[in-house]
Each structure stands twice: as structure tokens, then as C-alpha cells.
Design a protein around this nucleic acid. Sequence first.
DNA 1: GCACTGACAAGGT
DNA 2: AACCTTGCCAGTG
Length: 111
Amino acid sequence: MNDFFDMVYQVVRLIPQGRVTSYGAIARLLGTGQSARMVGWAMNKSHTQPVYVPAHRVVNSQGLLTGKHHFGNPMAMQELLESEGIRIENDQVTGFKNVFWDPQKELKTED
DNA sequence: GCACTGACAAGGT
DNA sequence: AACCTTGCCAGTG
């Protein structure tokens, strides 16, 4: 796998600090559309990648920290996001639309 | 090779 | 608005 998964990691790595994006947004960017699950699946094995992938900046379409259990410590994801200036309330990103980083919009000129 | 699972999303009831 | 169903695709048992 050097196509889909690597693309996902690349996009996730491009997420600026203090911003978040959704699995579906990445999926649509890659053209997989409905296969948002594969993005999450890619995140699961992101730890196998040679480079660090800020998976904590990826949340679901509701802004919920659905994958926080996969960080070893469930609150690690929230801690990381809050460290970047993102406010979390009840496992949800407050002002989600304000911190949402749309790859399709930001990377519109990507090659 | 079939079946189940999984960090999701959208649509219907 | 809450809950249920379908789609999707790769990995593992």
C-alpha cells in the first residue's frame, strides 16, 4: 500500500497546528468518497509509518474525538488538541467549524 | 476463500 | 432529534 494510505498520511501531516479535519473530508479529497472508514483504518496503522502522523487532528464529521481510545491514553488526544489551542468539550471540538481545515479547499492547488 | 470487524458518513424511519 | 440501515474497502481469523 503506497497509494491510498500514504495519501492519507500526507494530507494529515499537512493539517496545521490548531486545526482539525474529518475522515470524510480526506476520503472525498482522495476520491474514495464514501470510504471514510479506510481513512480511519489508515490512521490505525499510522503508527507503523516512519514519520509522525498527527492523527489527533483528525476527527469525525461531528467534530467528535472518536479515535481517542487509540492513543494509548484516551485523554491523550484531547490533551494534544488543547495544547494546540483547540477547546474540547464532552469529547467534541468546540467551534468545530471554526477550526475545521478543509483539505479540498486548502490544497486546491496541490499536485 | 468466506465472514467479521473497524478511528466513518449519509439517508431513512 | 434519536436510532437503524446501507455503502465502502482493506485486513485479519
